[in-house]
Amino acid sequence: MISVDDILAGDRLALSRLLSQIENDTPEGRAVLNKLYPHTGKAHLVGVTGAPGTGKSSLVNRLAHYYRHPPEDQRPKSVAIVAVDPTSPFSGGAILGDRVRMRDLSGDAGVFIRSMASRGSLGGLAISTSGLVQAFDAAGFEIVFIETVGAGQAEVDIARLAHTTLVIDVPGLGDDIQAIKAGILEIADILVVNKADRPGAEHTERALRGMLDLAHPVRRVFHHHGRLEVVSAPTTEASPKESFWSPPIQQTIATDGTGVSELGASIARHYQYLKKSGGLELRERARLQSELDDLLQATLLNRWQEAVPADKYQKVLADLVRRRMSPRQAVNELLDGVSL
């Protein structure tokens, strides 16, 4: 049995075993997580996402190192890292290779790195990632990094889980049209151009800057055909309280640490901003709501599956295949008489 007190007291083996129980969604894992929940809500959750090979793990390694060895006027913070890598859709196995980039952190008791496989989940995280994050939060880690699988354009679950989301870009991945597409760039609280020593870094930053200027217009005065024009910034309706954070663009070189302390400072600024503006509560609320909804869905599905006999399901499926029933009718048939 895993004891809640051991977790709260910082027992690393107990924590590690709990993380496995949560990943495997066991009754014991659920029970301990229920008891730990009141102790959560203190950590700063930092999401890190971006395409495969953009340097997410290397950058997390550098950032964690920065928090452990901060500038002189600050104290070191404890850091947990949840690194997600993809599960093979064919074998169900996975190679979790993020630790390879994080060897600088080994031997430090203030750091805990846990790799996890996505196990079929498609949003860039695994289903149990938020459970792992809660466990780290309750165990007293002050900063929790959540590194997604290499993400393309639409894996945006991280924005719901993290307080501060970093989107990592590198030179040469696309032009300004890529930059104005919907999806992953929209969720950035901070944009990072990593591998900034490569040719084209300035161009990438310019494309991102152009995208931001469209999304976060500010009041501008400019000359147009000899006349002085003033364009005032529109107020946003979607999130009035959060409307004044314009994501900074930070150039970094993760392999030698260039730009990492500036990035660390940006992360701290964003957290301060969230606290002051009330954005933190809004995000917490949205995060918990989406977690509640997901859990409700999964639980209802579970109960329904326990309530419906397998042969009835097979019979309806057969009818569906023979075109005797439409998919909607099949659903009605299967829900008929089931009390959830």
């Binding site: 690393r12 083996l13 590690s16 075993r17 993380l19 496995s20 599960t87 093979s88 074998s91 169900g92 196995g93 996975a94 190679i95 979790l96 290779g97 630790r99 390879v100 060897r103 080994s106 031997g107 805990f112 790195i113 846990r114 790799s115 496989a117």
Partner: peptide, 30 residues
């Protein structure tokens, strides 16, 4: 790679590890 294809989750720690690094990784990864 073979273990991955057999459905296992493989944490690859890579080259030049000290015994201390290996034990620490084994602990954190359970």
């Amino acid at each position: 790679r073979a273990l991955r294809d057999a459905g296992m989750e493989v944490i690859y720690a890579g080259l030049r590890q000290t015994p201390e690094m290996i034990a620490e990784a084994a602990l954190q990864e359970d």
